Amino acid sequence: MADPTASPSASPEELPPAPARQQSIALVDDDRNILTTVSIGLQAEGFATRLYTDGETALKALLENPPDLAIFDVKMPRMDGLRLLQALREQSSLPVIFLTSKDEEPDEALGLAMGADDYITKPFSQRLLIARIRAILRRSELAKATGEEQVQENLPDPVMRGRLSLDPARHQVTWGGDPVSLTVTEFLILEALAMRPGVVKSRNQLMDAAYSEDVYVDDRTIDSHIKRLRRKFRAVDPEFSAIDTLYGAGYSFTDG
């Protein structure tokens, strides 16, 4: 017999909502002052932060326990930001923002070509950094949410374009059955091209597809992502030529 003095159990409607998961940002920079300053700013915006002062230590931690996003400086001891990004991309598509100085433009282009989702030039404002972080995280969360909806609603199978299979539900891409690991930005650019094969998309249209309205990137950023897309597909098929360039106009996807 139930104890009449016991408090009644709360109904499902009365239960408090589950707390929102705190998103985590990994900061990798050998300058402890920058780490501290940026970390305080991110924590004030509700993010959890993880701090690393060298690339080797960071790489191990990022692979073992991935955060939601990572921010790499270029110049670091033991393993610099470029080498760290290269090593990470061999095993992970974790969103990455690349930090460079004004005199490091070649590093910016190389970082994007190696798979960074965005870059910010020092010195930068906390407001700009937060905007860029939120933009990339929104794209990442949108991809996950779309996948959950597709599973729940039993929506159609992945998009098939010739040898390309593109599955937004799982953020997965294959070419001729071989998996191709893409970052969030690369996936969105490819999706924009593959959804309308043969139609030329301008750089501005691809920027709109891959970035939110509050983030500005220049043409070189899109070009760098296209180069990396081609490189990734040619790693599984040296004859890959499905992404065409129409000079002065933009890019298109050919599914033939």
Rank of each mutant, 00 (worst) to 15 (best):
R163S: 14
W175A: 09
A61F: 06
L84W: 02
L142D: 13
G55V: 04
S11C: 05
A18L: 15
D118G: 07
G41L: 06
I34G: 00
P67W: 00
N65L: 13
Y251F: 15
E191N: 12
Q86K: 12
R78W: 03
F72M: 07
R127E: 14
A194G: 05
G46M: 05
S212E: 14
K232N: 11
A48D: 14
P197A: 06
L246H: 11
R89D: 04
P66E: 03
E56S: 12
R231N: 15
A143G: 15
K144D: 12
R32V: 12
F240I: 03
L190Q: 07
V200M: 05
A235W: 02
P4N: 10
P4G: 13
P158D: 09
L35K: 02
L166V: 10
T183F: 04
E239G: 08
S24G: 03
D237I: 03
V38H: 03
D178Y: 10
R139Y: 09
D219K: 12
F124T: 12
I40T: 10
L166M: 13
S181P: 01
T183G: 15
P77E: 08
Y52N: 01
E149D: 11
Q152K: 14
A20K: 14
L129P: 01
I71F: 05
E148V: 12
A109I: 15
